[in-house]
Amino acid sequence: MNDSPSTKNTYEGKAKTVEVLSDEKVRIIFTDRISAGDGAKLDTIPGKGKMNLTLSNRLMEVLEEAGIPTHLLERESETTIIARNLRILPVEVVVRNIAAGSFSRRYGVKEGEELAQPFVEFFVKDDKLHDPLIDRDVVVQMGLVPRDKLELVQARALQVNRVFTDYFSRGGMVLVDFKLEFGEDKEGHIWLADEISADSMRVWDAQTMEKLDKDRFRKDLGDVLAGYKVIMDRLDGIGGYSPEKQRMEVVVTIEPKHSVTNPGGEVTKRTLLNSGMGGIKDVRLGKTVNITVEDSSDPKWLDKLNQICKEILTNPMVETYTLGFR
């Protein structure tokens, strides 16, 4: 949480309070506070904390079932949960299916226009700068998140989107966009963190396109809680929901080290030159391995993958590798 700490072991956020219980665990208290526009607008809505927790827990459980690891450990009370103690990554991840909000304003796209494919944006968490949009390269360059982790986070966000889009559509709702936060534990494993609730997503009625989320509050559209309750009721109405296990595709790109001769590259280079393509200095042949991971629910699978890359997929003496996720 980027939010300011109030005591040594307690952090007051805009809508939540976090108490550190141990190296492994924290308690998260869902308050009734509500804010928008970087806290420019603040209020309290009785019962909102409880409602948010219920919705967030419900969604996290669905994600866990779909094989997406989350910070949730147990529900402690109506307004508190016990979660993993994570270092929250300093970028927020926004997934968009339909143009709305800052996306519409920024690019002049009409609200409600469907995007060709789901789109992921990153926002750096910095209240003073009002959480600005940040380019992926800048995230990496500034050392906020390394490239492979950023890619993993993006792939995870798209997994979440696939699950939610399906889940919400069954309740007659359209998922317009939503925000996620991720954290990493001491071993560097990535978990979905924070809360996922009506506070952090835009949801419209599939028929009427009526807004059912926090936008009601942003634009003073009637009873905020009522909207939240509609989302909850509609999800309840689906009854038991069993999401599809989300696959992850990993691309291992293996490159020959520059200090090692690369006969395949040499021959290819000659071929290119003989074919009349000039201006070539060097050609090197490597390979890619595409791995479809059926179950990536335990973040430790990544450690295993790295180990296999070093021990089998590559010969570290003559090759290097990078991981990509999609």
Binding site: V260, T261, N262, P263, G264, E266, V267, N315, M317, V318
Partner: peptide
């Protein structure tokens, strides 16, 4: 060599 019991690596022949 792949099992690291003997040093070095065996690359494709230069003729490929």
């Amino acid at each position: 060599t792949e099992a690291d019991l003997i040093e070095g690596a065996l690359l494709p022949n230069t003729t490929t």
